[in-house]
Amino acid sequence: MDKIREIADFLKTYDGEEVTLMEVCGTHTASIVENGIESMLSDKIKLITGPGCPVCVTVASYIDKLCELSKFDHTCVCSFGDMIRVNGSCGSLHDAKAQGGRILMVYSPLDLIDIAKAEPDTTFVFAAVGFETTTPLYAVLLEEIIRQDIKNIKLLTALKTMPAVIDRVLSSSDKITGMIAPGHVSVITGSDIFKPFAKKYNLPFVVAGFEGEQMLLAIWALTKLKDKGEVKNLYTEAVTGKRNETSYALVEKYFTPCPAAWRGLGIIENSGMRLKEEYSRFDAGSDGLYDDFIPKGCSCHEVIVGAKQPCECPLFGKVCTPLNPVGACMVSHEGSCFNYFNKKG
């Protein structure tokens, strides 16, 4: 605790060169807000949010497709809660439900097994979004579907992987001086995956857990390591340098890398995962959902790469609020606008 006090003092009184740190992962964003971390930092330390909230980076055509599917006969779209209020080009799943669509909020993809078995005449489509952390769950779901020979579950995938988008963000920003690497993702990928980027952009990556102390430690380490192309792992209880082979084997059995569309960033090669050809019978029509739609004035696409702070968006807090979200970043509990709104009011 003394060490943490020392670190807290250092961060509050830091008067060196300005540092700008990006936390990639939405759960880190939430932890920063929950712990009131920004209030503990000197003005010389800036935090910006990255593209690590799976809901925030999903493009409009994917939402539109979910809405369309929800209105088919004998079809039910199942989703994590946050996705339900994100707008596509013509409304959200929430709106689709009001128009007669069938939508079910679930807490885990595996819940679908019992749900689908109880209603064999309905096709249940899961809105399969997420990063390296969540994809293994879908693989487990597929294992179970095949084992039990369940015919009425499909996935609409918008799965993303981190390395290519991190490369994209860093190549287009000259203000970022350090990265808080995504913690959950690192559990699967291992921390070595960030080494090439640390070297290429000559800036430090720190892998951290989600406790407040870990966040302070990560910010301290990134401040100390400024201009050093190193990867430091503070989350050693869950993360090693190497990737989790069991997870990768499971994921690679069912999924294969593909280009992915990111909200506001366009298509990034090799930044997504889709079902392999031999499992395409489980796909609900995920191919080619690349079209994006940014509502007029919405800055989500700039917010997710840290180019703008939420309050710099003309809609923030006026037109766009958590109750009436315009952009995805105001919907998700991991979204920067949502968290920023709750923090600043």
């Binding site: 009131g36 971390i37 503990m40 709104f341 923090k343």
Partner: peptide, 10 residues
């Protein structure tokens, strides 16, 4: 916060 930060509760 327990960590010593300040935050708004919405």
């Amino acid at each position: 916060t327990s960590l010593g930060g300040k935050k708004k509760v919405g």
